[in-house]
């Protein structure tokens, strides 16, 4: 590296800004609409971490990411008000997650109720519309339904368990480019 290159690099980071201990940034700098490169960098990084985890841990990667998501869900939701009604809890969760994920309670046309009881199990269909996991996977050309999806699964399950006090399980029914269908099984 020549002296000129080093000087040029140093100059590009030179600044006359004075930071004092009381200077707490009150705004996101740069503005969020200028953060596209950062967002893409994060999505790429997340995709690479998950890909590497799958290579090293194999199917165990799913257990790791699910566990991490579930813990995070419990952590976040422990500050929410407790609601016994699952539909209400899902509505609350959808409002909280708005911006990252949008969740819709869904039922097939031939069902009368959202809470479906079939073969001794009780479940609710959930359609995930906006989802940063799906965007990350599609950005990196990775298949849906893998360990990164399970992080989100864990998150929803953990949050629902914490809010309602009931044990829950989530299953992938279908993944698509615009929305994914999941089944929240209540125990």
């Amino acid at each position: 590296m020549t002296d000129d290159t080093i000087r040029e690099m140093k100059d590009s980071f030179a600044s006359s800004t004075v930071y004092r201990s009381e200077d707490v940034p009150l705004q996101c700098v740069p503005p969020p609409d200028e953060l596209e490169d950062t967002l893409h960098g994060l999505m790429k990084l997340n995709g690479l971490i998950i890909r590497s985890l799958e290579e090293i841990a194999g199917r165990g990667a799913n257990a790791v990411t699910y566990r991490a998501g579930r813990k995070y869900g419990h952590e976040v939701a422990k500050y929410f008000r407790k609601i016994e009604d699952v539909e209400e809890a899902l509505k609350e969760l959808s409002n909280i997650l708005h911006g990252q994920y949008t969740i819709e309670i869904w039922k097939p046309a031939d069902k009368d109720r959202y809470i479906i009881e079939e073969n001794g199990s009780t479940f609710i269909y959930l359609v995930f519309h906006d989802c940063i996991v799906r965007q990350t996977l599609r950005r990196n050309g990775q298949p849906q339904g893998g360990p990164l999806c399970l992080t989100l699964f864990g998150y929803v399950v953990g949050a629902i368990e914490e809010i309602t006090g009931r044990k829950a399980k989530l299953e992938i029914v279908h993944t698509g480019p615009n929305a994914c269908l999941k089944k929240l099984i209540l125990q």
């Binding site: 869904w106 097939p108 046309a109 031939d110 359609v127 519309h129 279908h174 993944t175 698509g176 480019p177 615009n178 929305a179 994914c180 269908l181």
Partner: peptide, 14 residues
Amino acid sequence: VRAASCMGCLSCHE
């Protein structure tokens, strides 16, 4: 035949 059951995943488009 069952458009009312569509949840808009758009897999069919893809």
